[in-house]
Amino acid sequence: MTRTGKEETSPSLPAGPGGDRFAGLIEEHQRRVYALALRLTGNAAAADDITQETFIAVWKHLESFRGDSSLKTWLLRIAANKVRSYWRWKKLRSWAGLGREEAEEDAPALEDLIPDRPGSRPEAAALAADMERRVQAAISLLPPRQREVAVLRAQELSIAEIAVTLGMAEGTVKANWFEARKKLTGLLGEYL
């Protein structure tokens, strides 16, 4: 099917500045998808790959999107599934003895942390890097399900939306959020 056909079946897609709806969709959701992937994997390169794969999947399957859930929930569900695949792949590699030390790979590139304000670069970068490490460490300490729920809750999704995104019962989401919130309050108390 041609691209035009996809656009016709997805009237809810936002239009980008250049009239390119796909570009508009990326612009609107890329921060959310990347943040989810980064917080759940703790790996900047993997988060970048997952973000790209998520949007490519959206591009391919847009016509099958029935609009039962919101576009945001659908996108995040695809991204969360890709993150789960990533962890399965990591486990498999580790089992096969192909795992390797990824400390450097996990850290985001310094230039990616530096805001676009040349005057305050060193201090801002140091502060951003320190907070990034602490937040990521706290999130990484949570069990996988609690981590997923906490990251989505921090994106201000409701319990019902998280349940749809993760394919869980609302009660399970609530229980996981309760535990995650308690742990995060303890770990990041100085920021909360």
Binding site: Y34, T51, F55, I114, A128, M131, E156, L188, L192
Partner: peptide, 25 residues
């Protein structure tokens, strides 16, 4: 929690990412 877990990157990062995604579609 929302701003804490949000990811801050320069605009250039998002532009580059968007370009890569569109190029790979």
């Amino acid at each position: 929690l929302a701003p804490l877990l949000a990811v801050r990157r320069p605009e250039e990062f998002w532009r580059r990412q968007k370009k890569n995604i569109i190029g790979a579609a």
